[in-house]
């Protein structure tokens, strides 16, 4: 009981920590990272994974940075609130690295070819960074062409479908029929229909990202409050103004829902397409390394993909907050 009370006092005491004293969580995290480094070097590996000392050194460097930050917490400006917020995460990371080392490299509890210790992943980046970079570049090229093309076409098509009755008459039934089919179902057909697998892959990514954008843009434009058009028309607006400056901004919240859906679908189909017929790319890398049972490489590529995909999602959130700042609750005073 008293322990619980004390802990609550501790978390409440975070604020004075900012005032010039030390960042306690930072010190604990530094200790945890040092322990992880000791575990890594002090105990022998069941099989050699490489880059063991580099990993331990990185942990120690990280621990040093954390310790320095713990004492300078009052002087790092806006960074400090972020550090304080994620303090427990830094501790957990240190603990997790130590445990991960123990159950894989040190005791070998997990079946060997399928699991790699953290320094095994690091070794992949050290040894195979060139190939990984090339794969990232290939994936980025495929994704950006496909996604950009898909959302532009989807947006323009959605505006046309939402605005023009004749477009909607001919287009909506087709979109409703094709829309629900998962883009990956098109794979067999597209590899026939397009001269190169690269073009087929671009088509698949564009399809996956374009269809939700088209559907949500169309429905957004359909549901625009008619009174906005009346107001704009009495103030002298022509059709161009009504589309560009009334319908589209009013539908933008829906468009962004479509963009988020399209973004997730595009990642899904991107990797599948790369696994099937690409020469390079992260999907190909996963496939290729799995075939060689190089699971450390697979995990290393997965980590890269996680960072890239979540970074792109974050980026889209930033764009949305910027464009839709007028919405209630999003505006920061």
């Amino acid at each position: 009981m008293s322990v619980a009370v004390e802990q609550r006092d501790d978390s409440a005491a975070l604020a004075p920590v900012l005032g010039g004293a030390v960042w306690r969580h930072g010190l604990i995290a530094a200790a945890a990272w040092i322990v992880a480094a000791l575990v890594t070097v002090a105990l022998p590996d069941v099989v050699p994974w490489g880059s063991r000392d580099l990993f331990a050194g990185s942990l120690l460097a990280g621990a040093a940075v954390l310790a320095v930050l713990a004492f300078l917490i009052g002087r790092v400006g806006r960074l400090s609130s972020w550090l304080v917020r994620y303090g427990p995460w830094f501790i957990a990371l240190g603990v997790w690295f130590a445990l991960w080392e123990l159950i894989t490299a040190k005791f070998g509890w997990l079946p060997k070819p399928f699991f790699s210790p953290p320094h095994g992943l690091l070794h992949v980046y050290v040894v195979d960074w060139q190939r990984l970079l090339i794969c990232i570049a290939y994936t980025a090229r495929l994704w950006s062409i496909g996604f950009a093309g898909g959302i532009v076409l989807g947006f323009v098509g959605g505006v046309a479908l939402g605005w023009s009755k004749s477009f909607a008459y001919w287009g909506m039934p087709i979109l409703k029929l094709i829309g629900p089919v998962p883009a990956s179902a098109w794979i067999p057909a597209t590899f026939f229909l397009f001269p190169t697998t690269f073009q087929a892959s671009i088509f698949l990514v564009a399809l996956a990202s374009g269809i939700p954008v088209a559907i949500l843009t169309a429905s957004g434009i359909n549901t625009v409050n008619r009174a906005y058009y009346d107001v704009a028309r009495t103030l002298g607006a022509d059709n161009r103004f009504l589309v560009l400056r009334v319908a589209i901004p009013a539908a933008l919240p829906n468009v962004f829902v479509g963009l988020f859906m399209g973004l997730y679908y595009s990642f899904a189909v991107l990797v599948v397409a790369e696994m099937l017929g690409a020469k390079y790319g992260l999907g190909w890398y996963l496939q290729f390394q799995t075939a060689y049972s190089a699971y450390a490489n697979v995990y290393a590529a997965l980590v890269v993909m996680a960072l890239i995909c979540s970074g792109l999602v974050k980026l889209l959130f930033l764009v949305r907050d910027r464009l839709l700042g007028w919405q209630k609750g999003v505006v920061q005073w």
Binding site: N225, Y228, V231, L235, P249, W326
Partner: peptide, 14 residues
Amino acid sequence: RVLVFQDPTLFPWR
């Protein structure tokens, strides 16, 4: 000839 509605109908994004 301008009409002002019961709802202000301001464009919320502007």
